[in-house]
Amino acid sequence: MSNEILDIETALRLKGFNFRTSSKVSGYKSGIHKSNYTGISPDFLEHKEYNRGDELKQIDWRLYGRHDRLYVKKFEDEVNMRWCILIDTSASMGYGDKEYNKLEYSKKLSATLAYLLLKQGDSVGLAAFSENNIELIPPKAGSYFITPILDKLETLNPSGSTSLKDPVLKALETYRSDATFVIVSDLLLETDTVEQAIKLIRNSRKEVSLFHVLHPDETEFNFSGSIEFEDLETTEKVIVDTGSVRHTYRERVMEFIEKLKQICHENETRYVLSPTNQTIEKSLIQIADK
């Protein structure tokens, strides 16, 4: 089951990429993220093959003696970065084919990202939110931690209305130290609400990346004839002559997207538009460095 959520092929293709933050982080060990601290933690976690840039003093010379290869020691709190993936599970995320709706796409994107982050040594937590509920898995590092994340993702179902501000507040309480937030949502909210949520994170000196997941129906609106549309969250109904409204609708959606991009730009936040017909790889690569 877990394998269906995790896009192994994409993960393998993106294995050479690093997911970095743009600012200095408060990690304890130098790694791919630059640390503000120089101290060393005593809690051994695992050995890692030496890479250029690793501190020489961390080389385990005993192991070199036995295997004739260079390894460096890794300790529990030497994790480079902490990530929090916030995944929207509101009812609107259930739009699309049953097999591959926005939530399924978001799950796959989150799972793959979590895998890659864990692989690069960061600790990853998960928060599924809808309305005012949030289910948090605290961040942990280590490849093994992918299993509980995948299990949690597996259980998520779309329900309730979209809410962002309260879940973010709750997440911030959990992630008091440095962390990078990744929000995966369709963001069908007022742009002001989205801006408030982003500012809350940014004001806590945390970074945030935004995966805006939309179904092609929402951007293209390629319906025909007169259709009565019922809102997935509010159950509001409206009869629309799709032909006559299409042009204006597309304009409204584009305005919304442009506004979100502007908000993200102003708050130094990465915005990634992720239509569900776009590959996970293409979405993820936009926040990755070679």
Partner: peptide, 17 residues
């Protein structure tokens, strides 16, 4: 309308309509 469809972005439809 003969067809009823669930849709997430109804608010954009209302403003366009």
């Amino acid at each position: 309308s003969g067809v009823t469809k669930s849709f997430p972005a109804v608010r954009f439809l209302i403003s366009s309509q």
